[in-house]
Design a protein around this nucleic acid. Structure first.
Lengths: 339, 339
DNA sequence: CTGAAAGCGCTTACAG
DNA sequence: CTGAAAGCGCTTACAG
C-alpha cells in the first residue's frame, strides 16, 4: 500500500502538506500542490480509511439498523438500502449493515465499538426501543419512519396523510362512495405498534367522516390466504362496498382472488387501489393493481443525506423528509356499476 | 469513550496486558485477568474498531458488492444480504455495502482505501469484469454465483444441476413427457452472460435428450406481459406440452395468465413448476406455484463464512458451497390429462 | 505557505 | 506472566 509518507518523499514535502492538499484543509501554493498531486497519481495513493478515522475521530461510516424481519418490507427494503448506500457514496461515506433486532442491548454493543459516526433505523415502531439507546449514547441518528413522539428527531417517512387522501380522492373522483380499507393485522411486528397502518387508518376515518360515509376497516394477515378471507368477511358484512384501498402487499393477490370467487369482478364490480404498494407487487396481481408506490429509494437516500448533513454540522436542526407515494398504473379502477 | 489506558490504570496493569486479556493472545495470570475484566466491565470498555484495525492490519470489515440492478434478484437479494450480515456478525465482522456496478474502475477506488479485508460479489456474470480487479489488487473475495472459469475461486452458488433435475423428475414422476422450459431473455443484465439460465438450459437439454424428448425453450423478458406473450408463443408452436418449468419470477404470473386466456387451466391441462423462484412470488401466483426456492439466506451466509475463514487462514483452500433449491408447495402440479 | 511533532487508541515484537 | 516502547497511517494545533 502507498502511504502519505511515500507521497511526501517523492514530492519533497512533509506529510502534513500532503494531508493539506488531499483534504483541502489549508492553502497550499500552486507549485507544491501540483508536485503533490503528481506524486499521488504516479504512486496511486489513496489515504487509509482507518488511519483517517482514528486521527480525525470521524469514520465516515454510517450504520443501517437492519432487522431480519422477513415478514415485512421485503418489497421495498431493498430500495431503502440502495438509496441509503447511494447517498452515502455521494458524500464519501460508507454504509454498514447491522442485523440488529429491536434489541437495545445488542444495539449498545454495536455502538460501543465506535465503528460508525451515526445510525439509520428502519422499520421504526411508534414506541421504538432503539431510540432511547441512541439518545443515551449520544449517537446521531435518523429514522426511516416515525415514532409517535417525533419532537426533535430527524426522520424520513412516507407522507401517509397525503397518500391516503390521494387514494380516497381517486376513488371518489370515479364516483365511489362506499370505500373500505384493508390493513394488516397489528402486532405482527412484536411489542409496539407499527406506525403506517395507524396513521393511514386515522386519515381514512377522518376523510370518511368528512364525507359523511361509514368507515369500514378490514384486517388481514400478510399472506394471500388471509387476504382472500378478508374479502369474504368484507362482502358478508358490507356487500355494497364498491371501492377498496388495500395497504398490505402480500394479502392483495388473495384479496383479489377472494373477490373473484365471491363473484365480484375487478374493476367492473369493485375498484381496488393499492396503498404504499410496491410496483412489482402491483404488476403481478390479477388484474394489475392501480397503486401508490412507496418512494423507497428516495426515503433511504433522504435519510442518509440528512444524517450526513447532521454529522457535518451537528448544530444544524434535524431535517425531516416526508415524501408522498407515487401513483402507478393498473387495471383495477373504474366507475362503480350503475345500481 | 473508555480507552484501554483507562482500564489499565484502574486495574494497575499496562495496556499491553489489557490487550492480552481482551484478545486472549497471551497467557495472563488468573488474578490479573480478573482485575482487568472487572475494570473493563465497571468502565464499560469496548475496544475502538479503527484503532484495532490500524494496529492489527485487519479491519474485520467485509464488503458486499451490491449492483443497483432493480431488474434482477430483488426477490432474493435481501436474503443474501441478511445471510451475509448475519454470518459476519457471528464471526465478529461487519458487512459494508458497496453500490458498485460491474465497473472495474469504481471497484478499484473503493478497494484502495483499505477499508475492508475482503469482498463478496453478487450478481456474478460468466465473464465478470470485477474478478480481474480483485485478483490484481490481491483482495480476498468470494463470489455468490460462478464465473464460467471457476478454477481456484471460492464461491457459493445454487446447485442448478440438481435443482433442474429435481424439477424435471418431479414432472416426470407425475407422468409428464412433453416439458418446456421458460427462461429470461439473455443480455438483460448487460455485457456478459448470466450463468443461471445458461446452466439450467444445459442441464434441461441434457435430461430431455436422455429421455428422448424434444427440448422446447421459450424466452421471456422479466415482466408479466412478456410472460403472457411467452405462453401464447409456446402454445402456438407446441400445443402438446403438458409440463412447464419456469425460471423467471417476474414473468410467471403473466405466464399463468397467458395459459388461462388460451383456455388452458393449471394444473388440469398444464402443470407448472417454478425453478429458483422466491416463495413469496410463488405464493401470489394464481394458482400458487409449486416451486424450488433459492437458498438465498444460506448462500449469503455460506459466502461470508467462506470469506472470513480465508481471512483467518489465507493458506486454506477456497471453499465452494453449492446449495440446492428447496421444494415449496403449490397447487400447480397434477398428472397430465388423459389424451 | 510549510513543517516538526504530538496524538488518535490500539497491537505486537522484544526484554525481562 | 508482565511491561516499555515502537509502530499502524493519518490529522491537527502550534510555530515559523
Amino acid at each position: 500500500m502507498v502511504r502519505m509518507q511515500d507521497v511526501a518523499e517523492r514530492a519533497n514535502v512533509s506529510i502534513a502538506t500532503v494531508s493539506f492538499v488531499v483534504n483541502g484543509t489549508k492553502p497550499v501554493s500552486a507549485s507544491t500542490r501540483i508536485r503533490v498531486e503528481t506524486a499521488m497519481s504516479e504512486l496511486g495513493f489513496t489515504r487509509n480509511a482507518h488511519a483517517r478515522a482514528l486521527a480525525s475521530r470521524r469514520s465516515r461510516l454510517i450504520a443501517l439498523l437492519f432487522p431480519a424481519l422477513d415478514t415485512r418490507g421485503n418489497w421495498s427494503a431493498l430500495q431503502f438500502v440502495h438509496g441509503a448506500s447511494a447517498a452515502a457514496a455521494e458524500r464519501d461515506h460508507h454504509l454498514v449493515l447491522w442485523p440488529v433486532e429491536n434489541d437495545p442491548v445488542a444495539l449498545r454493543e454495536y455502538l460501543d465499538g465506535g465503528l460508525v459516526d451515526g445510525v439509520l433505523a428502519m422499520e421504526v415502531q411508534l414506541e421504538d426501543p432503539r431510540v432511547p439507546v441512541l439518545e443515551k449514547t449520544g449517537t446521531p441518528f435518523v429514522l426511516i419512519g416515525r415514532t409517535s413522539d417525533t419532537s426533535g428527531y430527524a426522520f424520513a417517512d412516507i407522507d401517509f396523510e397525503s397518500s391516503t387522501r390521494t387514494a380516497l380522492a381517486e376513488l371518489h373522483r370515479l364516483g365511489h362512495r362506499r370505500i373500505a380499507l384493508v390493513l394488516e393485522q397489528p402486532g405482527a411486528l412484536g411489542d409496539s405498534a407499527y406506525g403506517p397502518p395507524v396513521r393511514v387508518e386515522g386519515v381514512y376515518r377522518q376523510v370518511m367522516a368528512e364525507r359523511g360515509e361509514e368507515a369500514v376497516v378490514v384486517l388481514s394477515d400478510r399472506d394471500p390466504a388471509s387476504g382472500a378471507d378478508a374479502a369474504r368477511r368484507l362482502l358478508d358484512r358490507h356487500p355494497d362496498v364498491t371501492g377498496l384501498v388495500v395497504m398490505n402487499d402480500e394479502a392483495a393477490p388473495g384479496l383479489l382472488r377472494g373477490l373473484r370467487s365471491a363473484g365480484r369482478s375487478v374493476p367492473e364490480d369493485v375498484s381496488v387501489l393499492g396503498l404504499s404498494m410496491a410496483s412489482r407487487m402491483a404488476a403481478v396481481c390479477e388484474p394489475p393493481l392501480a397503486h401508490l408506490a412507496p418512494p423507497g429509494y428516495e426515503l433511504g437516500h433522504a435519510a442518509a443525506l440528512s444524517l450526513i448533513d447532521h454529522l457535518d454540522d451537528p448544530s444544524a436542526p434535524p431535517i425531516r423528509s416526508v415524501l408522498p407515494c407515487v401513483l402507478g398504473d393498473g387495471e383495477s379502477l373504474a366507475p362503480p356499476a350503475a345500481p
